[in-house]
Design a protein around this nucleic acid. Structure first.
Lengths: 208, 208, 208, 208
DNA sequence: GATGAATGAGCTTTCATTCAT
DNA sequence: AATGAATGAAAGCTCATTCAT
């Protein structure tokens, strides 16, 4: 009876922020299901019940993390892109910026990567996240459309397909970094990718 | 009371095979956690207890599916690769073969794609799958090493990095197909990817 | 941080009264368990913690409501009863008064109705409420004893039994009104009940 | 690991039946909310998880109990009623039969009594129980309609109102028995009620 | 007089697994 | 080869209550 309620002398600075950060990390690393309230609470130093003071449900917490992260990634890409630069340069800088973000905040990129799978696995996540998602794709599509209209890519490739290619490669990079946590190997791969995407990877193309 | 034991008139032909197929599909589509014994049993038309006649645990079942699937993918790639062909041709045929497999057996490719994440999320899966894995990577590495030694790629790119690039792109393709189930868009992307990997995507490269 | 403490411009006029009224309504309609502090606080426009300024516990709040309500019902019955009237008239007026109260304050009657069940379900409620309860029964018993001593009822019926009958019928009326919220049907039932209790319901009795 | 699964040598005869009986008792005595899976399981001698082998949810279990109980009560009333008997006799026998049932199976009557409140408190219960309920009311209404058409009751009382009266009195009896568990007092009340309902309670009616 | 943050206990439900038949 | 019955563990979530501000 007397031991119930809030314990005396408990500080709890910025619990909400710490919760969001830890949730991001865990959702990214372990997935939605394996991220249990218990582990989360323990990491942050509170009880599971306290989580519900900040988020009405696990799903809502996921959405909050998603919104945060999407913002960060969008800003990162937008800062890397310049209206005056050509496609090759924009891509190069985007890859660099995302690679840097991956190093600084691995959880951010890994989280973004995992969203589509989680959305597919959990209908409720899908329903909550779908209306918010798509921002990143739209930014990339803009770049691709400009590249196509400027005649910077082969006529065989549509803007949509070009954007799909970018998505595949960029998300692949993030995924790669997540799986093999080998900074040096990832860096080398990033460079190779930049060469590939800017068209200087293969001698064949020039020799033929 | 009298209904216990094995029911009469139950053939049980290849229940094991049906179990493996359904498990593959579900592991690929829903993930390891969301693939529950209950759903699995229902899909196959048996009870959860019966599963344990074929596999001693969920993990072992996962490993069995993994072995199956790895075999299929390896054979597919090996058939696409020829010792006499150059890198560009080998890659082109490999992409085609995997794209075809993705269409024929979406679960196969999707499963392969998910293995690394699952292994990361579930230490027990990792421990069981690790010693078996790496076959696909080794095959691709072979092709890449030959390409490098023949001088078919830029000197800035190592064989390892080339293989990483291939892995990223190929797995990215599989993932893309899984997320957007748009056959036409995937086909266009496959073609664009082939152009990219064989170095003919960008006009820039030719103009320089 | 700065938002803690008592918010400015909060009058807090009779928050306690509003709390009591809402608690009465909710206890009556939803029961003790389903009446959560959270819902209560929301309905009144405060936080759950604020409730504890007025009542040291949920049980005490229940007791407070009980005392209020018992008072109201007792006064209602006492006003309906007259020493000079005969049993039949007293009953008739009591039924009318309670029926009117049911219409004016449905929660009052419904609450009274539910007390015995709640007391049975929750030992703590029982312990707190028991010493206070019984007032209504005593008033009715008085009326019944006078009726018996005056020879107004069949010799086969004791005063205690007569009071039990009254209790059953009166509480049954309240319960009926609570379940079917059909004012017209309830009114008709009240009239029938008055006929029954005053002995004019059945032709059989007169024909024989 | 090795301690999981079904324990060796566990008999479990008629667990489902025992579960239903205990659930009926507990739902009736403690209510839906206070009837926890844990207590239920302990009473029956199993674990909470085992409950879900028999009922997919608590609500479904409640519905199963309800169906059982309704059947019993309906049969009891139907057996007491005879087409050839007059209203007074039918009612007298019905009251006797239900009183006997109340003694033999207190939980049955108490459960029936509580259904309407529970349905009101829990929308899910309401949704599940509503389509099944009403059987008892229909049986009583039949009796009442016959009584009205035969001219056995005062013209001021409609068949519907007569049935409402019966319901109030009968359910009131059950409730009374539940609250005061005094067999002798209940028996006396039953007799008084029979006098009341058959019109012989009050001298007033004959003397005037 | 009222708040926001936090708690321990408890609830319903699900899961992989086990065992006798 | 397959079943029905049962388990321990754990998950997400709710609740009455407490404390510092």
């Amino acid at each position: 009876m007397s031991k119930l309620g809030r314990p005396i002398n408990c500080v709890g600075v910025d619990t909400c922020q710490r919760l969001l950060i830890e949730a991001r990390r865990s959702f990214a690393a372990d997935g939605f299901d394996a991220t249990t309230n218990k582990k989360l609470a323990q990491s942050v130093g509170i009880t599971t019940a306290a989580i519900y003071h900040y988020f009405p449900s696990k799903i809502e917490m996921y959405v909050a993390v998603f919104t945060d992260v999407q913002d960060l990634v969008c800003k990162t890409i937008e800062n890397a892109i310049s209206k005056d630069a050509d496609f090759s340069e924009n891509i190069s800088k985007t890859v660099d910026a995302l690679a840097a973000l991956t190093v600084r905040e691995p959880a951010v990129v890994a989280f973004v990567m995992s969203v589509s799978s989680e959305a597919h696995r959990h209908p409720e996540v899908k329903k909550a996240v779908l209306p918010l998602s798509g921002r990143i794709g739209r930014i990339l599509l803009d770049v691709c459309e400009k590249a196509v209209s400027r005649g910077e890519v082969s006529e065989q490739i549509s803007a949509q397909s070009l954007e799909d290619m970018l998505t595949v490669v960029l998300s692949g990079l993030g995924r790669f970094n997540m799986v093999y946590k080998d900074a040096r190997r990832t860096k080398e791969l990033v460079n190779s990718m930049k060469l590939l995407l800017t068209g200087a990877a293969f001698r064949v193309s020039t020799s033929v």
